[in-house]
Protein backbone atom coordinates (compact mmCIF):
# COMPACT_ATOMS: atom_id res chain seq x y z
CA UNK A 1 0.00 0.00 0.00
CA UNK A 2 2.65 2.47 1.06
CA UNK A 3 4.74 1.68 -1.91
CA UNK A 4 1.80 2.38 -4.14
CA UNK A 5 1.50 5.87 -2.71
CA UNK A 6 5.17 6.40 -3.26
CA UNK A 7 4.67 5.30 -6.83
CA UNK A 8 1.94 7.88 -7.27
CA UNK A 9 4.29 10.62 -6.10
CA UNK A 10 6.93 9.48 -8.54
CA UNK A 11 4.38 9.33 -11.36
CA UNK A 12 3.21 12.85 -10.52
CA UNK A 13 6.79 14.10 -10.58
CA UNK A 14 7.34 12.49 -13.96
CA UNK A 15 4.14 13.94 -15.36
CA UNK A 16 5.22 17.33 -14.07
CA UNK A 17 8.54 17.17 -15.84
CA UNK A 18 6.84 16.09 -19.06
CA UNK A 19 4.44 19.03 -18.80
CA UNK A 20 7.45 21.30 -18.39
CA UNK A 21 8.96 19.72 -21.47
CA UNK A 22 5.83 20.52 -23.43
CA UNK A 23 6.04 24.16 -22.38
CA UNK A 24 9.68 24.36 -23.38
CA UNK A 25 8.78 23.07 -26.82
CA UNK A 26 7.00 26.21 -27.84
CA UNK A 27 10.15 28.26 -28.12
CA UNK A 28 11.43 26.23 -31.04
CA UNK A 29 8.62 27.24 -33.36
CA UNK A 30 9.25 30.46 -35.24
CA UNK A 31 7.21 33.33 -33.89
CA UNK A 32 7.97 35.91 -36.57
CA UNK A 33 5.64 36.16 -39.52
CA UNK A 34 8.22 38.09 -41.49
CA UNK A 35 5.62 39.10 -44.06
CA UNK A 36 6.03 42.83 -43.65
CA UNK A 37 9.09 44.47 -45.14
CA UNK A 38 11.83 45.18 -42.62
CA UNK A 39 10.21 42.98 -40.00
CA UNK A 40 12.89 41.43 -37.80
CA UNK A 41 13.34 37.73 -38.54
CA UNK A 42 13.04 35.27 -35.71
CA UNK A 43 13.03 31.50 -35.40
CA UNK A 44 15.57 28.73 -35.29
CA UNK A 45 17.43 26.75 -37.92
CA UNK A 46 19.08 23.42 -37.20
CA UNK A 47 21.90 22.34 -39.47
CA UNK A 48 23.81 19.08 -39.14
CA UNK A 49 26.17 16.92 -41.16
CA UNK A 50 29.75 16.94 -42.47
CA UNK A 51 32.43 18.23 -40.14
CA UNK A 52 34.17 19.61 -43.25
CA UNK A 53 31.20 21.80 -44.19
CA UNK A 54 30.36 22.58 -40.55
CA UNK A 55 32.84 25.48 -40.23
CA UNK A 56 31.49 26.91 -43.49
CA UNK A 57 27.88 26.89 -42.31
CA UNK A 58 29.01 28.18 -38.90
CA UNK A 59 30.77 31.12 -40.57
CA UNK A 60 27.65 31.81 -42.67
CA UNK A 61 25.49 31.61 -39.54
CA UNK A 62 27.74 33.94 -37.62
CA UNK A 63 27.72 36.57 -40.36
CA UNK A 64 23.96 36.20 -40.82
CA UNK A 65 23.24 36.50 -37.11
CA UNK A 66 25.18 39.76 -36.76
CA UNK A 67 22.45 41.26 -38.96
CA UNK A 68 19.55 39.06 -37.77
CA UNK A 69 20.07 38.55 -34.07
CA UNK A 70 16.58 37.07 -33.64
CA UNK A 71 17.40 33.95 -35.63
CA UNK A 72 19.04 31.08 -33.76
CA UNK A 73 21.16 28.90 -35.99
CA UNK A 74 22.92 25.88 -34.57
CA UNK A 75 25.34 23.55 -36.34
CA UNK A 76 26.15 19.96 -35.49
CA UNK A 77 28.86 17.73 -36.98
CA UNK A 78 27.49 14.19 -37.11
CA UNK A 79 29.30 13.51 -40.39
CA UNK A 80 27.79 13.58 -43.87
CA UNK A 81 26.06 10.20 -43.47
CA UNK A 82 24.83 10.92 -39.94
CA UNK A 83 23.59 14.30 -41.09
CA UNK A 84 21.53 12.76 -43.91
CA UNK A 85 20.02 10.24 -41.49
CA UNK A 86 18.70 13.09 -39.35
CA UNK A 87 17.77 15.21 -42.34
CA UNK A 88 15.73 12.42 -43.90
CA UNK A 89 14.03 11.77 -40.56
CA UNK A 90 12.92 15.40 -40.57
CA UNK A 91 15.10 16.28 -37.57
CA UNK A 92 17.21 18.93 -39.28
CA UNK A 93 16.24 21.49 -41.89
CA UNK A 94 19.65 21.75 -43.47
CA UNK A 95 22.19 19.00 -44.03
CA UNK A 96 25.87 19.74 -44.66
CA UNK A 97 27.49 17.30 -47.07
CA UNK A 98 30.98 16.79 -48.47
CA UNK A 99 29.59 14.40 -51.14
CA UNK A 100 26.35 14.18 -53.09
CA UNK A 101 23.48 12.28 -51.47
CA UNK A 102 23.53 8.50 -52.03
CA UNK A 103 20.63 6.55 -53.53
CA UNK A 104 19.78 4.74 -50.30
CA UNK A 105 19.70 8.09 -48.50
CA UNK A 106 17.38 9.44 -51.20
CA UNK A 107 15.10 6.45 -50.61
CA UNK A 108 15.07 7.12 -46.88
CA UNK A 109 14.10 10.74 -47.52
CA UNK A 110 11.38 9.67 -49.94
CA UNK A 111 10.03 7.14 -47.46
CA UNK A 112 9.67 9.85 -44.82
CA UNK A 113 8.24 12.37 -47.25
CA UNK A 114 11.21 14.75 -46.98
CA UNK A 115 11.66 16.65 -50.23
CA UNK A 116 14.97 18.41 -50.63
CA UNK A 117 17.20 20.51 -52.88
CA UNK A 118 20.97 20.29 -53.21
CA UNK A 119 22.89 23.58 -53.27
CA UNK A 120 26.61 23.85 -54.00
CA UNK A 121 28.33 26.19 -51.53
CA UNK A 122 32.14 25.91 -51.91
CA UNK A 123 35.03 23.76 -53.10
CA UNK A 124 37.49 21.81 -51.00
CA UNK A 125 40.92 20.81 -52.27
CA UNK A 126 43.98 19.17 -50.76
CA UNK A 127 47.53 19.92 -51.81
CA UNK A 128 50.55 17.66 -51.66
CA UNK A 129 53.56 19.83 -50.91
CA UNK A 130 57.33 19.35 -51.04
CA UNK A 131 60.42 21.42 -50.40
CA UNK A 132 61.19 24.18 -52.91
CA UNK A 133 64.62 22.65 -53.61
CA UNK A 134 63.22 19.23 -54.38
CA UNK A 135 63.75 18.49 -58.08
CA UNK A 136 62.48 14.94 -58.56
CA UNK A 137 58.99 15.36 -57.08
CA UNK A 138 56.96 17.31 -59.62
CA UNK A 139 54.10 14.93 -60.31
CA UNK A 140 52.82 11.89 -58.42
CA UNK A 141 50.18 9.43 -59.55
CA UNK A 142 47.49 8.29 -57.16
CA UNK A 143 49.18 4.86 -57.11
CA UNK A 144 52.49 6.39 -56.08
CA UNK A 145 50.78 8.39 -53.35
CA UNK A 146 49.12 5.21 -52.17
CA UNK A 147 52.46 3.37 -52.09
CA UNK A 148 53.75 6.22 -49.98
CA UNK A 149 50.87 6.56 -47.53
CA UNK A 150 49.09 3.18 -47.27
CA UNK A 151 49.10 1.46 -43.86
CA UNK A 152 51.37 -1.31 -45.19
CA UNK A 153 54.08 1.25 -45.94
CA UNK A 154 54.72 1.80 -42.24
CA UNK A 155 58.40 1.12 -41.59
CA UNK A 156 58.89 -0.43 -45.06
CA UNK A 157 58.74 2.37 -47.62
CA UNK A 158 61.54 4.57 -46.32
CA UNK A 159 63.44 5.77 -49.38
CA UNK A 160 62.06 7.53 -52.44
CA UNK A 161 63.31 4.90 -54.92
CA UNK A 162 60.83 2.48 -53.37
CA UNK A 163 57.99 4.68 -54.55
CA UNK A 164 59.28 5.04 -58.08
CA UNK A 165 62.52 3.52 -59.36
CA UNK A 166 63.34 6.80 -61.14
CA UNK A 167 63.52 8.68 -57.85
CA UNK A 168 66.84 8.87 -55.92
CA UNK A 169 67.43 6.66 -52.89
CA UNK A 170 66.95 9.54 -50.49
CA UNK A 171 65.18 9.03 -47.15
CA UNK A 172 61.46 9.82 -47.01
CA UNK A 173 60.22 12.26 -44.39
CA UNK A 174 56.44 12.68 -44.17
CA UNK A 175 54.22 15.31 -42.59
CA UNK A 176 50.44 15.26 -42.41
CA UNK A 177 47.43 16.32 -40.41
CA UNK A 178 46.41 14.51 -37.22
CA UNK A 179 43.80 11.79 -37.30
CA UNK A 180 41.07 14.09 -35.91
CA UNK A 181 40.91 16.28 -38.96
CA UNK A 182 38.58 16.15 -41.93
CA UNK A 183 41.63 16.63 -44.17
CA UNK A 184 43.07 13.35 -42.94
CA UNK A 185 39.77 11.53 -43.50
CA UNK A 186 39.46 12.91 -47.01
CA UNK A 187 43.04 12.15 -48.07
CA UNK A 188 43.05 8.61 -46.68
CA UNK A 189 39.71 7.84 -48.36
CA UNK A 190 40.74 9.13 -51.77
CA UNK A 191 44.32 7.85 -51.81
CA UNK A 192 44.29 4.71 -49.65
CA UNK A 193 40.70 3.76 -50.41
CA UNK A 194 39.58 3.66 -46.80
CA UNK A 195 38.80 6.54 -44.49
CA UNK A 196 41.28 6.65 -41.63
CA UNK A 197 43.68 4.07 -43.11
CA UNK A 198 47.17 5.58 -43.17
CA UNK A 199 50.76 4.70 -42.45
CA UNK A 200 51.56 5.72 -38.92
CA UNK A 201 55.26 6.64 -39.07
CA UNK A 202 54.79 10.24 -40.21
CA UNK A 203 54.84 13.45 -38.21
CA UNK A 204 51.20 14.32 -37.55
CA UNK A 205 50.16 17.79 -36.51
CA UNK A 206 46.82 19.53 -36.17
CA UNK A 207 48.72 22.74 -36.79
CA UNK A 208 49.29 23.29 -40.51
CA UNK A 209 52.17 25.60 -39.64
CA UNK A 210 54.16 22.67 -38.29
CA UNK A 211 53.72 20.91 -41.63
CA UNK A 212 54.91 24.02 -43.48
CA UNK A 213 57.97 24.33 -41.26
CA UNK A 214 58.76 20.62 -41.45
CA UNK A 215 58.55 20.41 -45.23
CA UNK A 216 60.34 23.71 -45.87
CA UNK A 217 63.21 22.57 -43.66
CA UNK A 218 63.89 19.19 -45.30
CA UNK A 219 64.70 18.68 -48.98
CA UNK A 220 63.25 15.15 -49.02
CA UNK A 221 60.09 15.84 -47.04
CA UNK A 222 56.51 15.65 -48.27
CA UNK A 223 53.28 16.70 -46.62
CA UNK A 224 49.65 17.47 -47.39
CA UNK A 225 46.99 19.92 -46.22
CA UNK A 226 44.19 22.17 -47.42
CA UNK A 227 44.74 24.10 -50.67
CA UNK A 228 43.99 27.53 -49.20
CA UNK A 229 46.75 27.04 -46.67
CA UNK A 230 49.16 26.29 -49.48
CA UNK A 231 48.10 29.52 -51.18
CA UNK A 232 49.12 31.42 -48.07
CA UNK A 233 52.53 29.75 -48.05
CA UNK A 234 53.20 29.56 -51.76
CA UNK A 235 56.60 31.26 -51.31
CA UNK A 236 57.85 28.57 -48.92
CA UNK A 237 56.65 25.36 -50.56
CA UNK A 238 56.14 23.67 -53.91
CA UNK A 239 52.89 21.96 -54.84
CA UNK A 240 53.11 18.52 -56.45
CA UNK A 241 50.89 17.88 -59.46
CA UNK A 242 48.61 14.88 -59.06
CA UNK A 243 47.82 12.37 -61.77
CA UNK A 244 44.39 10.90 -61.11
CA UNK A 245 44.37 8.97 -64.40
CA UNK A 246 44.04 11.90 -66.80
CA UNK A 247 47.57 13.29 -66.66
CA UNK A 248 49.37 15.54 -64.20
CA UNK A 249 47.30 18.44 -62.90
CA UNK A 250 48.80 21.23 -60.81
CA UNK A 251 46.44 22.24 -57.98
CA UNK A 252 44.77 25.59 -58.50
CA UNK A 253 41.44 27.17 -57.65
CA UNK A 254 40.27 26.68 -61.22
CA UNK A 255 41.38 23.06 -61.43
CA UNK A 256 39.56 22.40 -58.16
CA UNK A 257 36.38 24.04 -59.40
CA UNK A 258 36.17 22.38 -62.80
CA UNK A 259 36.87 18.93 -61.38
CA UNK A 260 40.12 18.33 -63.31
CA UNK A 261 42.24 18.16 -60.14
CA UNK A 262 41.20 14.62 -59.32
CA UNK A 263 40.78 13.05 -56.83
CA UNK A 264 41.91 15.63 -54.27
CA UNK A 265 39.25 18.26 -54.97
CA UNK A 266 35.53 18.06 -54.25
CA UNK A 267 32.53 20.35 -54.19
CA UNK A 268 30.78 20.94 -50.87
CA UNK A 269 26.99 21.05 -50.57
CA UNK A 270 24.16 21.91 -48.29
CA UNK A 271 20.85 20.11 -48.67
CA UNK A 272 17.76 22.06 -47.69
CA UNK A 273 14.33 20.63 -46.91
CA UNK A 274 11.58 22.08 -49.13
CA UNK A 275 9.24 22.10 -46.14
CA UNK A 276 11.52 24.63 -44.38
CA UNK A 277 11.52 26.91 -47.39
CA UNK A 278 8.19 28.42 -46.32
CA UNK A 279 9.89 29.95 -43.29
CA UNK A 280 11.16 33.45 -44.10
CA UNK A 281 14.17 33.19 -41.81
CA UNK A 282 15.24 29.95 -43.49
CA UNK A 283 14.88 31.44 -46.95
CA UNK A 284 16.79 34.55 -45.89
CA UNK A 285 19.64 32.49 -44.46
CA UNK A 286 20.07 30.28 -47.54
CA UNK A 287 20.02 33.32 -49.83
CA UNK A 288 22.54 35.06 -47.58
CA UNK A 289 24.75 31.94 -47.67
CA UNK A 290 25.04 32.04 -51.48
CA UNK A 291 25.12 35.83 -51.86
CA UNK A 292 28.10 36.00 -49.48
CA UNK A 293 29.69 32.68 -50.46
CA UNK A 294 33.08 34.20 -51.36
CA UNK A 295 33.46 35.88 -47.97
CA UNK A 296 32.20 32.79 -46.12
CA UNK A 297 34.47 30.40 -48.03
CA UNK A 298 37.46 32.62 -47.31
CA UNK A 299 36.63 32.73 -43.60
CA UNK A 300 36.36 28.94 -43.42
CA UNK A 301 39.39 28.46 -45.70
CA UNK A 302 37.74 26.90 -48.70
CA UNK A 303 37.79 27.77 -52.39
CA UNK A 304 34.85 30.05 -53.30
CA UNK A 305 32.47 29.10 -56.10
CA UNK A 306 33.39 29.99 -59.68
CA UNK A 307 31.06 32.32 -61.58
CA UNK A 308 29.47 29.33 -63.25
CA UNK A 309 29.07 27.42 -59.98
CA UNK A 310 27.47 30.49 -58.41
CA UNK A 311 24.96 30.54 -61.26
CA UNK A 312 24.21 26.87 -60.59
CA UNK A 313 23.71 27.60 -56.90
CA UNK A 314 21.36 30.48 -57.69
CA UNK A 315 19.29 28.37 -60.06
CA UNK A 316 19.17 25.62 -57.42
CA UNK A 317 17.75 28.17 -55.00
CA UNK A 318 15.37 29.51 -57.67
CA UNK A 319 13.95 26.02 -58.18
CA UNK A 320 12.72 26.15 -54.58
CA UNK A 321 10.39 28.98 -55.51
Amino acid sequence: MKIQRFGQVAAAALAGSLALAACGGQQSTPSGSGSGSGAALTGSIVSDGSSTVGPLTSAAAELFMTENSGVKISVGTSGTGGGFKKFCAGQSGMSNASRPIKDEEKELCAKNGVEFQEIIVANDALTVVVNKENTFLTCLTVDELKKLWEPGATGKVTTWDQVNAKFPAEPIKLYGPGTDSGTFDYFTKEINGEEGASRTDYSPSEDDNVIVQGVSGDKNALGYFGFTYFEENVDKLKAVAVDGGGGCVVPSSDAARDGSYKPLARPLFVYVAKKEWAKPEFKAFVNFYIDNQAKIAEAARYIPLSGEQEKTAKSEIASLG
Binding site: G24, G25, Q27, S28, D48, G54, S58, S74, G76, K86
Partner: peptide, 16 residues
Protein backbone atom coordinates in the same frame (compact mmCIF):
# COMPACT_ATOMS: atom_id res chain seq x y z
CA UNK B 1 24.02 14.85 -32.49
CA UNK B 2 25.61 17.26 -30.06
CA UNK B 3 25.70 20.70 -31.62
CA UNK B 4 29.10 22.32 -31.92
CA UNK B 5 28.05 25.79 -33.02
CA UNK B 6 25.48 27.29 -30.69
CA UNK B 7 25.31 31.02 -30.14
CA UNK B 8 22.33 31.28 -27.81
CA UNK B 9 21.63 30.27 -24.23
CA UNK B 10 19.68 27.06 -23.67
CA UNK B 11 16.25 28.22 -22.54
CA UNK B 12 14.03 25.20 -22.11
CA UNK B 13 13.91 21.44 -22.04
CA UNK B 14 13.49 21.26 -25.80
CA UNK B 15 16.12 23.86 -26.58
CA UNK B 16 19.18 22.91 -28.60
Amino acid sequence: GGLVFVTYDPNGLLSG
